[in-house]
Design a binder for these strands. Structure first.
Lengths: 195, 195, 195, 195
DNA sequence: AATGAATGAGCCTTCATTCAT
DNA sequence: AATGAATGAAGGCTCATTCAT
């Protein structure tokens, strides 16, 4: 039952299925056949579109990162004050859109996947650098370079830390608490810039 | 030529080899044969001692957690003031003993492994609870319950966050910076308990 | 935009592409998609014209055999003496037109292909019989039947032998040597018919 | 049902099965599973011993070449006159031991296999060089260098030619004829060295 | 105690072929 | 006439696990 112009639809379906399947399994040990079946097609077609399992994973990872990036960018467009922008980044990072169990689980696995796969590592680095520069460009207006650097690193660690804990620690705080704790960390630093 | 009393030696060798293999590979995709070879024995013997690959992994995970736990406990025995004890926990978490590339890599993989494997999840929860109670029992003496809870969660997230970033982010801060940032976070909260 | 009267052009393109692909790959392990792409069309169209991969191969094989046969026939039309005709057959067999690396490589693979595929076997037998009868009809005029038979077999073996060696042995003699050696074999037999 | 010291037995069984399977199929399109089954073991074990299908093929090719080489060497040890030695080489090449349908078929396929596989090409070149030097070292004592070279090439081509024809041409001469024709070619050249 | 022989299930990937458009 | 979407079977290879020795 071949149809024309199916490529983007198929690719999208495969990416969604990949994230769902990984999220559900809790690991990258999902088969192409599983993914393809969930996406409503044969494994052969999945390979036809992506070439290999690795490419499917990378596309899914790219999708998650792009979604997150788009969301942050969209939110940042609404505010201009450095402090507001920093709070926006934090809020966006934990926004329900990016903070679904499924996405976090897949995300975490891709995060670790980067240890093995150079292309995944590259994607992760882009994400890391972008978050860092987003934080720094605002912090630098409020703090000394050294303090800004520290707070940027601290915030990034806290964000990643809450992600991993949310996915894996039973007693991790809920989303609202997570946001509160992270925002507090930020405000404290802005309130006492000399400390 | 089989020898008697080899069991503990063999088990230790296998655990060390497992951590080393996982650390090197950057993932759990290591074969029992690889592990056994590195430990200087046949794969059959590895199964003889542990029963299954999963048990080998769990033993290695337990080993890492116990090492960390023992180290923290040892350090805590030397100090009694809540503030000192909190700083000790942070310092121990990033102590070179626990912060080797290899151990971090293996640790991270076990962390994710817990999503799939109930026994691993249980081990991780023990670690989580112990860290939390260690932090709380000291924080509660210095802060309100609610603030203590927040700071405990924030510290735990930061610790885990720095671990994962250290393993995976090219531009993660070095150990000394990591400690400085985390200790700052703690001190700030202790200095302004009402905030 | 489909065009009319394309069939012969498409078929020719596919046959040429098949020979080129096989020659390049050095084996029959070429995909229909590769062949079709080289011929400037989709794999679907290749099937449309030939029905199956086997038919494509057979058509290519037929093409090589027909080219060779046409060439020999054309050259034979120019000479009438048995000895000249025999030399003509040898010369034609190693003529640059039939002795390109690509054609030899494809030819060899088809030769072996005949072991598996009845239709290919039939084609090969036609070639074999034709070469044999071409040689015999001339040799019989110069030698006894038994000797003629021997020389015909010897020449055929030498021709095939040089083909396969040319394709596969690094130190095989060059074309001019090949011709010289084969012609020598012929002349020796004609010079000493009783031997 | 594992037993000790099985390796050489298994390897031998696999090599024999490979030659038989290829001979029967008439092509290299045989599966590892087929080969393993014929050799009385699982496909996994075949991989355990050889690592890959390619290695299995190469081992089988090596086996055929070594058998042939050993046989020739054994026969050559019995005669010392150049002419006798040359006739011995021819006779050995067509000896029933090396001239079974099965071995010829496998041999031919490996011959073509060499176009694709560098290691197979190397093996083939060794065979080619050895045959050439065997022929040359004797011919050079009876003929001029140039003539010796020609006859060596002619003989090699005829031998290969008869092999391929025997495998693939219905009307190829029988073994005794093949030997007669090749020996005649040799004697003719030795009888009229100036020609 | 220790080995490594042996199995078999499972996965990724390829590809000829079909078919809606 | 032409495309390329789609399938599904098949194959090479890996690996945890078992077991005879």
């Amino acid at each position: 039952m071949p149809k024309v112009g199916m490529e983007p639809i198929r690719r999208k379906a495969l990416i969604d299925a990949t994230i769902a399947e990984i999220g559900e399994a809790g690991s990258l040990d999902v088969t192409v056949t599983q993914i393809a079946k969930r996406a409503g097609m044969s494994s052969g077609l999945a390979h036809h579109y992506f070439g290999s399992k690795e490419q499917i994973f990378l596309a899914a990872m790219r999708h998650i990162l792009r979604s997150y990036g788009d969301h942050v960018r969209g939110e940042l467009a609404k505010v201009s004050q450095p402090k507001d922008r920093l709070e926006t980044i934090i809020a966006a990072s934990f926004h329900p859109l990016n903070f679904t169990d499924e996405a976090i689980s897949a995300w975490l696995n891709f995060y670790v996947y980067a240890r093995t796969t150079p292309d995944a590592k590259r994607l992760l680095e882009v994400y890391g650098r972008r978050l860092h520069s987003n934080l720094m460009s605002n912090l630098i207006q409020l703090l000394s370079r050294r303090r800004a650097e520290h707070v940027a690193q601290g915030l990034a660690a806290m964000i990643d830390g809450f992600y991993i804990r949310h996915a894996l620690q039973e007693n991790a705080p809920i989303r609202s608490e997570v946001i509160a704790i992270t925002q507090e960390y930020l405000r404290q630093n802005l309130a006492h810039p000399k400390q």
